[in-house]
Amino acid sequence: MNSEPASLNETKSHQQPLPLGTTPAFAGMHKWLQRGLVVCLTALVLEGAFTFPLLAMWYGWPTLSLQEICTEFEKIRFADESRVCIYPYPLFGPAEGAGQTTAQDQWGIQPRPQYKAIGYRELIQRVAARQAAESTGVP
């Protein structure tokens, strides 16, 4: 907001005024930094706005409700088909996984989980298969 000596604000080559605070020596660098900032701003906005809906769709929404997705996550990470996602969760209750003994890991100094990556809308098939098994009485 302060004024600056004219010599600092002008390039020698094209006599175009430089932004306040930018000296000729750093004009090029500031220009590239500004471009980088604009890219980051745009990317952060798009990520922020679309990550949740796109992730939800990948994992099966709207065919599955959010609570059903939450339940499937719980069954997979604790390797326990009897688990369900309790919602609303009691405010001062213990952590939902506290004391569990079913999760499958290869334990050691570098623990290695045994679950597999979940494919595109694979949770829908898991739910459908379970429902089909329940309806036919097959465990």
């Binding site: 992730l55 939800a56 959010l66 939450c70 996550f73 990470r77 919602y87 506290a98 569990q100 989980p113």
Partner: peptide, 28 residues
Amino acid sequence: HTLLARVFLMAWGNMFDAGYFWHYNELW
């Protein structure tokens, strides 16, 4: 323990970084 966190964070974790999936909500 909100539904939003348990779906969003764990979906993100399962997609990019299982720090947000592995034994999630097990620490006190």
